[in-house]
Amino acid sequence: MNTIIEFKNVTKVYKSGDSFLKAVDNVNFKINRGELVVILGPSGAGKSTLLNLLGGLDSVTSGEIIVNGSHIESFDDYQLTNYRARNVGFVFQFFNLIPNLTALENIELMKDVVDFDIDGLKILESVGLKNHANQFPSQLSGGEQQRVSIARAIAKKPTILLCDEPTGSLDSKTGVLILNLLQEMSTDYNTTVILITHNSILSKAADKTIKIKNGKVEEVTVNLMPKKFTELNY
């Protein structure tokens, strides 16, 4: 298995007035291509900061982040935009769909940032929403909106799919369906899926679990026999 992501001594310090907050403190880990990784930790542990750094939304204070051989910590704004456009798919807790665009248009929107054609309907079909193509987000349920969000993320064929509490706003039944969909992305399309959650049960379905506490990596566990999300007891 080849490494696609590597964090080397990554530290992120936030300054607030005269005080400093070390949100990520000398973090080191590696993630292989096609893995489904769960980043686990309590609230305020630094999980989202890690995701933001990896997604190119924020910059490191020190350390290196190597994605597919590129040092993204040294990227300028333009390179980071390109990196997000070509390599990263985001799935947010609150879906972040563009309310003025239909489900299909939210997906086809990605045509403007990639250099290949996107068959929006086919992607919508893959998430089971072909019949909702012309509906606006406000006409969809939470689970449906999150599926559109995933469809939008995978439309770019990203190498990494970053999911920040993707089931946080959903009921448990819908949540399982969404997690299952993400797992399929990892297994069927060899996409690296990184899932942020505070629900430790989900680690049973992950290839790797990175436990974060107080900004530090507490433990990295590799699961050689990951279960399916549908098999877990929530």
């Binding site: 935009t81 990196y83 972040n96 403007d112 940032v113």
Partner: peptide, 16 residues
């Protein structure tokens, strides 16, 4: 602003 930031996260360039 929220829509713009979402588009920016998704990889749209600022100029766009």
């Amino acid at each position: 602003e929220n829509d713009i930031v979402t588009l920016k996260v998704l990889g749209f360039e600022s100029a766009y």
